[in-house]
Simulated scan of single mutants.
Amino acid sequence: MLKGIYLTLMIGPGVPLIAPQVVVDALTGVQVTSSKDRSGFQLTFAVAKNSPLITTMLPAGYFDPIITRVLIIVTLNGVPNVLMDGLITNQEYAPSNEVGQSVLTITGEDLSVAMDVLDMVIPYPFMPDEAIVNLVLAKYLVLGVTPLVIPPIIPVIKTAIDGWITQRGTDREFIKERARINGYVFFVDPGPVPGQSIAYFGPDINLPIPQPALTINMDSATNVESLSFSLDGLAKKIRLYTIYDPFTDSIPIPVPVPNVNIFKPPLGVRPTPPARFEIAQEGSELAIDEAAQTILGFMMNNSTAITASGSLDVMRYEQILRARLIVGVRGAGLAYDGLYYVDSVTHNIKQGEYKQNFTLSRDGLISNTPMLIP
C-alpha cells in the first residue's frame, strides 16, 4: 500500500481466509472506526457490470451479512496491527452508467454484533455480576473472544427474597446494562493476534502507555494535519442522592456526588468546575449496597469538559494512533498542551494513502505533566 505499510484483508464464513486477488484489485477504500463503545468498518469496491464480485461472488454469498467474518490487518515497519475483526452487517450496491464507476460498499461491526442478534429471557439466581458476565460471554469463545471481566467494586448479590437478576433482551444489551449499573464499560477489542479478540467488562481505563506526541504549529516537527479544541462549561455536574440510614430506614441522608472518575483523573492542573446541579430520581428506594453501587456508577460514568479532534497522516506520524490509550499534545499553547485520553480513532486507507481522524478528551487546563514523548 505504502512503503513500509502493508494491508491484509481476510474474508470468509466462520474462519476468514486471505481475500482473492480479484477482491483486492477492486478494493478502493477501507475505513475502520475504533471507539470506547463499539467498532465498525466499511470496505468500498469499484466494480464493472461483468466483475466477478457482481456476477459470481455476491450471488454466491461471499459478502453475506452476519455469517461472513472480516479481518483487517495493517503491518507497519514489520509489526502487524489488527484493526478489525468483525462481521458484515450490510451491503450496498450502486450501479452506474459510467464504465467502472459502479460501487459495492460492505459495512460491518466488531464481533460484539454477534451478541446482538437473539433476544433471550434467562434468570441468574444468586450470582454476582462477574459470574453472570463470564457465563454470558462463554458461548462466544468459539469466535476467539476471550472474556476479561473485572469484578464490580461494590458487589450486589440478590437473595431469594429480593429476587434475582434476569436477562431480557440480547446478550450485548444485557451486558451493557450491567456495565452501566456498575459504572463500567463493555467492548470487544480485536487482537492482539489475528483471530483473537478481548471482551472487556470493567472500569473505563485508558492504558497508561503514552503514544508519540501529536505536534501542531511547530514547523518541521509538526505531525498532524489539523487539531482543534473545545471546552464545554456545562459538562461537569453535581447530582444529589437521597438515601435512608440502614438502621432505622427512616432518616433521609442527602449525598451530593460530583462526577469524578477515580480511574480517569484530570490531566490538567485546572479542573473544570461543575456548573450544573441535579437531583437524582433513584437511590432512596434502594438498599444501601444498591444505592452505593448506583452512586459509584454515576461517578465513574463521568463526562470530560475538554475535547479535541483532528487528523493526521500515518506516514508523517510514523505510528498508528490507537484508541483507549493516552497521547501527548504539543504546540497548542499553555492551556491545551499535555496528555489526553484517546476516545476514538478512524482509519481511512486508500491506495498510497493512510490517514486517521481522532477525538481526544481530558478534564482540566494546563498540563500537569512536565515532559512528553516526542
Rank of each mutant, 00 (worst) to 15 (best):
P152Y: 11
D363P: 04
L118Q: 15
V136C: 01
L43H: 09
G108K: 09
I132P: 02
F263H: 09
Q91V: 15
E353T: 05
I165P: 07
K49T: 07
T307I: 04
S361P: 06
V22L: 14
R38S: 15
H347A: 01
D313C: 03
V99F: 06
I366H: 10
A160G: 03
E282R: 13
F63W: 07
L148T: 02
T44N: 12
I238P: 04
P203N: 13
T75P: 06
P125C: 04
Q21E: 15
I253R: 10
I150R: 11
K236M: 01
H347D: 02
P65F: 10
I72D: 15
A323D: 08
N259E: 14
I349G: 09
I11D: 08
P52R: 05
V255L: 07
V47M: 11
P155H: 06
V269E: 15
N134V: 10
I67Y: 12
A332Y: 01
V30H: 14
G191E: 02
M1E: 03
N259T: 15
L137M: 11
W164L: 05
N81M: 05
D343I: 04
R324I: 01
V133E: 11
R172Y: 03
S34D: 08
S39I: 10
L325K: 06
I67F: 04
V70K: 07
I67S: 13
T146R: 03
L9G: 11
A179R: 06
E282K: 15
P13Y: 08
V255M: 11
F263G: 01
N261K: 03
Y140D: 04
Y241N: 15
S367A: 14
L141N: 04
I295E: 00
P271V: 06
P203A: 09
A235G: 08
G202A: 06
G191L: 00
I106H: 09
T222F: 10
Q42I: 03
T44H: 11
D189K: 12
P194E: 08
G202S: 05
F41Q: 01
V22C: 13
A26V: 11
N90T: 11
N357G: 06
R270K: 10
P274R: 09
N134G: 08
E318D: 06
N368G: 06
K350W: 00
R362M: 02
S284Y: 14
F298C: 02
F298G: 02
T89V: 05
Y184A: 03
S284V: 07
K237G: 04
T166M: 05
D289H: 13
I66D: 10
V329A: 09
